[in-house]
């Protein structure tokens, strides 16, 4: 990524700018794009929202929620992080690339449709799975949860992909064409 701002020689502009990837991992953006408050908020909110999204995913069978809404909520958390941390923060090669996430989500969805065949059930047929887990005790799961997980993964991947293309991609275009971001 081109980072003309990083070597900004103007000391008055740069003196209080954070120089390390302090709060969020990923590349450090130029100080002009950074906002301390937003970064702190994101830092605080991001994991919470992710946990909430998993809750929504699991609760979907019993109340408002489900894989789709959960995925969107998680996606919005990434949006927040993108706005705060910039495009370099996400998907720059270290993390799993968004198309892989999308593909995995799709694969989980389709496999969950086909998997019942392995157990002598019909395509997309669901069943209750009971399992005794060490801490939680007996847990019952409807197998349609797998589809929900697929949906969740896919939506997260889609949002990441949008951030990569519409977000970082356009931002980079703007920089390359010498325009200034309006927002």
């Amino acid at each position: 990524m081109a980072e003309p701002d990083r070597a900004d020689p103007d000391p008055e502009q740069a003196w209080d700018g954070p120089r390390q990837p302090w709060l969020l991992n990923g590349d450090c953006r130029g100080p002009r794009h950074r906002s301390l408050l937003l970064e702190i908020t994101t830092r605080a909110v991001f994991p919470t929202v992710l946990v909430f999204s998993v809750y929504l995913l699991l609760v979907g069978h019993y109340g408002p929620g489900g894989g789709f809404s959960a995925g969107l909520v998680a996606g919005l958390a990434f949006v927040l992080r993108h706005i705060a941390g910039g495009g370099g923060d996400l998907g720059s090669g270290r993390a799993v690339r968004p198309p892989t996430v999308i593909g995995a989500g799709m694969a989980v969805g389709v496999v969950s449709a086909l998997l019942p065949l392995a157990f002598g059930l019909r395509v997309l047929e669901s069943a209750k799975l009971g399992a005794a887990l060490p801490v939680l005790g007996a847990v019952e799961v409807q197998t349609s949860l797998f589809l929900e997980v697929g949906v969740y993964l896919l939506i997260v991947g889609v949002v990441l992909e949008l951030l990569r293309s519409l977000g970082s991609g356009i931002e980079r275009d703007l920089e390359e064409s010498g325009e200034r971001a309006r927002q």
């Binding site: 892989t100 799709m106 694969a107 389709v110 449709a113 065949l117 019909r122 395509v123 997309l124």
Partner: peptide, 23 residues
């Protein structure tokens, strides 16, 4: 037979997912 009829839909979808993951 009722399985066969779903495969023309699901197999290409699975294939699409695979071709993305192993792009």
């Amino acid at each position: 037979m009722s399985t066969v009829i779903t495969l023309p839909v699901l197999l290409p979808m699975l294939g699409a997912a695979v071709t993305v993951v192993f792009a």
